[in-house]
């Protein structure tokens, strides 16, 4: 059973518009139609000049984040029906500069991710000599969930601190800092704690939980940030033992 919905699309080109406007389109939505489907239909049949970013259409690439009816969501992971409204308003993600229309600029967001050193730091791991780290399932589970992050920026758009604090790394970056800190292969614990123990670091999180509310991958960045802060406060210090390299004997 299809229903007709009105899609309102935010239109703004900083290069020559002084004001933003909404363009409205009537679209036929089936129960399985996603907001991305609707936008691509509009782009194909009604107005091909709308700028938006997408790639995988299956909540894996993290490109299609936008503000849909006031909440940051992935357009490809949000069905028109589940919004329970005949009007669907699409805006670019807040807290990101606007490139054009629904396309947001992720430069600062990715720079903050990089400033967390999102890689294993361990000089032993550099020696590729056939040896490998062995991790128990419990050790993997300490960081696995955080490594599911697809860098879609929904959490960054929802965070009240990011809304005003340009120097705050944001939920995505801080959760990744915890992901590497608690990985038993990583040795840079002190360096990592120094980076986030800053006037604009982990302390500017007040556990408003909005990041975890909108995360489409179950990363629960708020959990990562509280565990990071707890570690900094000296809690759970025994939860990390740096792993040794083992040579796997051929059977």
């Amino acid at each position: 059973m299809a229903k007709r919905v009105k899609i309102r699309v935010f239109r703004y080109n900083p290069a020559h518009d002084t004001d933003a406007r909404y363009d409205e389109f009537e679209v036929e939505a089936e129960r399985w139609t996603t907001v991305l489907d609707a936008l691509l239909y509009i782009k194909a049949h009604k107005d091909h000049s709308i700028a938006l970013r997408y790639s995988c259409r299956m909540a894996s690439c993290g490109s299609c984040g936008m503000l849909i009816n006031g909440i940051p969501r992935l357009a490809c992971y949000t069905k028109v029906y589940e919004l329970g409204s005949d009007v669907v308003t699409c805006r670019p993600l807040p807290n990101f500069p606007i490139i054009r229309d629904l396309a947001a600029d992720f430069t600062a967001f990715f720079a903050k991710h990089k400033s967390m050193k999102p890689y294993i730091i361990n000089e032993v791991a550099e020696s590729i000599d056939g040896r490998e780290f062995i991790q128990k399932p419990e050790e993997v589970e300490k960081y696995l969930q955080f490594s599911y992050c697809i860098k879609c920026g929904l959490c960054y758009a929802a965070c009240p601190t990011v809304a005003t604090d340009r120097r705050f790394p944001g939920p995505q970056a801080l959760a990744q800092m915890y992901r590497y800190l608690i990985d038993s292969r990583d040795k840079a614990t002190d360096e990592r704690l120094r980076i986030v123990d800053d006037r604009h670091g982990v302390w500017r999180c007040h556990f408003a939980g909005s990041c975890s509310m909108v995360c489409p991958k179950g990363v629960d960045p708020a959990l990562g940030i509280q565990l990071l802060r707890a570690y900094l406060l000296g809690m759970n210090r025994d939860s990390k033992v740096v792993a040794e390299l083992y040579r796997r004997e051929p059977k």
Binding site: G70, I71, P92, L93, P94, N95, F96, P97, I98, A104, A157, A158, P160, A163, T164, R166, F207, A208, G209, S210, M213, V214, A222
Partner: peptide, 17 residues
């Protein structure tokens, strides 16, 4: 396009926390 202080002032989105 930062949400700014408006983001702080609205308690009705994103649940109890």
């Amino acid at each position: 396009n930062r949400e700014g202080i408006k983001g702080w002032l609205n308690p009705t989105r994103y649940g109890a926390n």
